[in-house]
Design a protein around this nucleic acid. Structure first.
Lengths: 211, 211, 211, 211
DNA sequence: ACCTAAGCGAGACGGTACGTCATGTCTTGCG
DNA sequence: CGCAAGACATGACGTACCGTCTCGCTTAGGT
């Protein structure tokens, strides 16, 4: 009755090993960064043989995607009472995540690798990117309920605009922190929120600082 | 030191070498991508010894930053008549640049490396990022002249909002193409322009397609 | 009455497995040679699990000794009518055996291993070497009966000279084939027989060829 | 003018490295034996990188042949006054050589490998085997001069019988020590000399012991 | 007819060595 | 003296076997 897995014989894979490897990968990312991380070192840290690691992941890219994906699932969006507050909350949360060294060094690196590796791109999309779009959908649904935003006209338009908002918000934070190399401070967050609320005209006007 | 060049043999190399190396680096990025690019291969392609290469650049990161920086200087912003048109133009131009394989594979990679290498981050900022902020300044100046945007209140606010706009626009395009892995098509560009013009409420409303 | 092994319960070992493993070992020696033979491959060929194999043999050396030992028991020495004919017969037979790829590749290899492994040397001696000394004893007994050789003076001398003759004859054939890498052809065999009959003076004189 | 070697540019190979590697190989053979010798360990012992080692030798087999070949060139044959004395001298010398652990463990192993590797067999023949045939030729020439042996009838016969004598003498010693695993003591040497002098009838007669 | 203990296949496990590759440095000899 | 050619020490790569260890089954003998 139960759809048994195709191979049922042999010694089963150690579940503990998977967890140890992913944890060791994150630790190694913190200590060494992406480019100096070696799978041999990860295996040693995890108390595992290199072969065990290669049995489960095709290479460094895939391993790091899995190791980092879990971090992104920690993001959440409680109701802060208004669209602006929700946006501010999620932006700060995302910035805090990108401030963690393991996320910072790994995210751009695997994205860079994915430009020449379609399966990797798909894995990143499935494990990391698409899962965070839920935050946009939740936020928008609340804003619609509050009357802050008009209701989407159709499913396709809804998806399209969600993608756009996601790219703008996530892209802005990533670019600010990793490309421009500057902190996501209150001033910048308030500027972004203003821009999202009212477009460029709102963004260029000075804002009351709260710092 | 003195550039003597009456009829000396063997001398002309040095000047040509730089150009040949950077060109070879771009070609290698196209063929191999960032992670499989090796300095030995670049040297061979450039018809140069590895020693010559290491005499001029500290490593792969620095070389690639220099090789790619030139591409970004091609961006320009002619007056398209309105703020919206200017934004659309620069977004499309930037997207076209990021579609080139040598830019795509290299940009994220060096940014990733720069998360643990402050001198590299500075080099990227100087050679690539900051030079493109001129586009924002030019665009805003025109928009102010046209009365599309209010004048900035002070130099500091002006710089701050220019940084914000730059992060939002560039970040959105980079995220769309490299992280989400989707094309920057007309629909998306128009959505972005609408969002920049009027904020989220404008972005979620359906737009007249031009595709 | 029979002093059964201490543990008598449980499923008995499969007799078929032993035969299959030894046969698979010989086949693998033919296909791969000693150094590329792996126990995993032998197990697969024999349709047996690696554990089954390790339950019975300590390692590759022991397994191969057992696998090739059987080949050597095929040697025999029918009465050819004279000492010279008996020697020629046994030399040709031994040469034919050493021409089989599984014997050729395995014999020297296990002997080489045995230089640092006393138990292995003993196993080789018991399973292979000493069993073939019977051929010398049979041949000498016949020659004595024919009056071709004087009777040995004592048991110790008899054993000593049998060892010597064995080393000389077997050593010559092995050296000819495996070290010098040349064929044991009629000319060489006749030369050897002449040398054994009359010593070096006989060996350096030209012999009537029969090829 | 001089026919320079094809490649004349670049840093030349270190002559010191070659010597250090061969010496380290012999030391490793003594410590570990053939089967546990690893090229990585040899490289470490020689204070050399693995790549340097692989640049010069194709693998373990070739390296070991070169490392032990030098040992065999130490053999020599001073005039001991009679054929029997010359034979005894060279047999003892060869036995002493085979008693050295690096020669013992390596010789049979490379011979075993050579059964499936024709280039290796040729290398062994050129570097080790053929070079020792000189001893047979020297010994025979002296014996002929002394009148102990008849002169060879032709060059071909001379070569053939030299090969035979070499296989018999060297084969007997090798077989005695490595296969039978017994010492080449005086009794055995005298037996061998007697056999070579007068054939089997001389060998089976008891000899005056000198031990 | 059950019980029990060992054998069995499959295959994952921690290891070790492999042979190759790229890095960044260092000698050479040529021009 | 600059430079190409390429050897060098270093160290990671990804693979192959090793010999051991679970697993979930047979498969017998003793009761």
């Amino acid at each position: 009755m139960a759809p048994r897995s195709p191979a049922r014989t042999g010694r089963p894979r150690s579940a503990a090993a998977d967890a140890a490897i992913l944890e060791a990968t994150r630790a190694a990312l913190v200590d060494l960064g992406w480019s100096k991380l070696t799978l041999g070192d990860v295996a040693t840290r995890a108390g595992v043989a290199k072969t065990t690691l290669y049995r489960r992941w095709a290479g460094k890219n895939e391993l790091v995607v899995d190791a980092v994906a879990a971090l992104f699932d920690e993001l959440e969006l409680p109701d802060r009472g208004s669209l602006a507050a929700d946006v501010e909350y999620v932006v700060r949360q995302f910035a805090a995540l990108l401030d963690r060294p393991e996320a910072k060094t790994a995210l751009m690196a695997v994205v860079a690798e994915s430009t020449r590796d379609e399966p990797l791109r798909a894995r990143i999309r499935d494990s990391i990117v698409d899962r965070q779009k839920r935050l946009v959908l939740v936020g928008r649904a609340r804003a619609e309920a509050r009357g802050e935003l008009p209701r989407a006209q159709g499913a396709q338009d809804a998806a399209r605009s969600a993608d756009l908002i996601f790219d703008v918000v996530a892209g802005a934070v990533v670019h600010r922190m990793l490309v421009s190399g500057q902190a996501v401070d209150s001033q910048w967050v308030h500027g972004l929120v203003a821009l999202l609320a009212g477009g460029l005209p709102s963004a260029v006007s000075p804002l009351p600082s709260d710092a």
